[in-house]
C-alpha cells in the first residue's frame, strides 16, 4: 500500500511540500489550482508560508458524495490562508486547537493523510498548520 495525492497537479511532496498555482500569462493573476489551459496559464510554485485570512470548523460530516473522508468523523478546521504576493487559498487547518485559531496567525503548508481509497492506498491532502520556528 502506498500514498497517493488526492489529485494530480495540486501540490508536490518533494523536496518540500509545495502548492502549485497558475499564473495568467496575460494578466499575471495567480490562482489555485492551476487551470488546465496551459496556453493561458503557467504553473507556478506558491509560497509555503502565509497568514490565516479567516476560518471555521466543520462540525458535521459533509455529505457523500462528494465527500470521501472517513465514515468515522471528527470535526475539522478549515479556512483561507493568504500567501503573500500570490493568492488566498482554501485549506484544511491541522495540528491546532480550534480555540487557538486567530486571523493573522502565521501558517505553513504540510501534507496530511486524509482518507483511504478502494485499493487501500492512503490519500494525501495539503493542509496548513501553525508556523513552527526553528
Amino acid at each position: 500500500m502506498s500514498a497517493t495525492a488526492i489529485a494530480d497537479g495540486l501540490f508536490r511532496a518533494l523536496p518540500e511540500p509545495t502548492l502549485i498555482g497558475g499564473r495568467n500569462r496575460e494578466t499575471g493573476r495567480i490562482v489555485f489550482p492551476c487551470p488546465a489551459d496551459r496556453d493561458r496559464w503557467e504553473a507556478v510554485d506558491l509560497p509555503r508560508r502565509g497568514t490565516l485570512w479567516s476560518w471555521t470548523v466543520q462540525r458535521y460530516r459533509p455529505k457523500t458524495p462528494p465527500y470521501v473522508g472517513p465514515e468515522d468523523f471528527a470535526p475539522f478546521a478549515l479556512g483561507y490562508v493568504e500567501l503573500p504576493g500570490a493568492t488566498i487559498v482554501e485549506s484544511r487547518l491541522v495540528d491546532v486547537n480550534f480555540d487557538a485559531l486567530k486571523i493573522g496567525m502565521e501558517m505553513q503548508i504540510t501534507l496530511v493523510p486524509f482518507a483511504t481509497d478502494d485499493q487501500g492506498n492512503t490519500i494525501m491532502l495539503y493542509a496548513f498548520t501553525p508556523l513552527q520556528e526553528g
Binding site: S54, Q58, P62, L78, E90, R92, A115
Partner: peptide
C-alpha cells in the same frame, strides 16, 4: 468536493468570521 469543501455553511461561516 472529495476533500470536504463543497459545503455552503463553511463559506457563510468563514465570510462572517
Amino acid at each position: 468536493g472529495e476533500a470536504g469543501f463543497m459545503v455552503t455553511t463553511q463559506f457563510f461561516a468563514i465570510k462572517l468570521q
